[in-house]
Amino acid sequence: MSVSFDRRDCWIFDMDGTLTISIHDFDGIKRILGLPLDRPILEALNELPAAQAALLHQQLDALELDIAHRATAQVGARELLTKLRPPWWRASRSRGAQIGILTRNSKPNAQATLAACGLAEFFPTESILSRHCCPPKPSLDGIWQLLSGWSASPDRSVMVGDYLFDLEAGRRAGSATVYLDPTGEFPWQDRADLPITTLAEITAML
């Protein structure tokens, strides 16, 4: 491990595939929307005429909402979030770790996903940033927006995700990066300060 969590009390999580078990078929979604398979969905939509993109965004929202309702929590997610933000902290609103979501999904779908997974209680609405709240990852804007709201500096933060864009956003923002890959293959390990195969590995370090 090349990073210490001792003074890092601002935790930012990707959602799909990180706090949830990944069930997205991104290539399948691209085929339904008629998008090229070699481009990320949001970037491909941004390259289309505005009217066409707007219609496809509506279709994307509907597809993602169906997935949201079927979402299940990643193994160890609730235990990790409880360790970071125990119930007595949340009830008293006293000082504790700050935790937020930074997702390329929409905000309503993110909230539906967290509700389906039983994790909604951990995240106030202002701590859930979606593609409609800021430029999507790999932009660092969402991380800085959360940190600004928490009056915190990047050296107090951790970005946890399962994909290249999560790690790139964290690196650009100056956050520590934790890379979850249950397969243990870690194709983007060079962008990670800590590669893990389960969220329980983080919980054990806190």
Results as ranks from 00 to 15, higher is better:
Val75Met: 03
Trp88Glu: 12
Asn109Lys: 14
Phe5Ile: 02
Phe122Cys: 10
Leu35Thr: 06
Leu19Ala: 10
Thr177His: 01
Leu146Thr: 02
Val178Gln: 07
Leu102Met: 08
Ser22His: 08
Leu37Ser: 02
Gln74Arg: 10
Ala77Cys: 14
Ala77Ile: 11
Phe122Asn: 12
Leu114Met: 07
Gly184Met: 10
His69Val: 06
Ser157Gly: 14
Leu19Pro: 00
Leu42Gln: 06
Thr72Ala: 10
Val160Leu: 12
Leu180Ala: 04
Ile101Asn: 04
Asp66Leu: 15
Ala73Gln: 12
Ile99Asp: 05
Leu37Thr: 13
His132Cys: 11
Pro135Leu: 00
Leu206Tyr: 01
Asp155Tyr: 10
Phe123Ala: 08
Arg90Gln: 15
Trp11Arg: 06
Leu84Gly: 03
Leu60Asp: 03
Ala50His: 09
Leu55Val: 03
Arg191Leu: 12
Asp9Met: 02
Asp38Glu: 14
Asp166Met: 06
Ala173Val: 12
Ser22Thr: 11
Asn46Cys: 11
Ser2Glu: 00
Arg131Lys: 11
Leu63Thr: 00
Ile41Lys: 04
Ser175Pro: 01
His57Thr: 01
Arg78Thr: 07
Arg39Thr: 11
Pro124Glu: 12
Ala112Phe: 05
Leu48Cys: 02
Ser153Val: 13
Asp38His: 13
Leu206Ser: 01
Gly28Glu: 04
Ser148Met: 15
Phe123Thr: 08
Asp14Lys: 09
Pro108Arg: 06
Glu47Gly: 13
Asp9Gln: 03
Arg7Val: 11
Asn105Tyr: 10
Thr183Gly: 00
Thr203Tyr: 03
Gly174Leu: 08
Gln58Ile: 03
Pro40Cys: 06
Ile128Gln: 09
Arg8Ile: 09
His57Asp: 04
Ser175Met: 01
Leu199Val: 02
Leu63Gly: 01
Ala192Gln: 08
Ala77Tyr: 09
Gln189Ser: 15
Leu129Gln: 10
Thr103Glu: 04
Gly142Asp: 12
Pro182Thr: 05
Ala71Gln: 08
Pro182Ile: 05
Leu65Thr: 04
Val158Trp: 07
Asp162Arg: 02
Glu168Val: 15
Ala120Ile: 08
Ile12Phe: 09
Gly161Lys: 08
Asp66Trp: 10
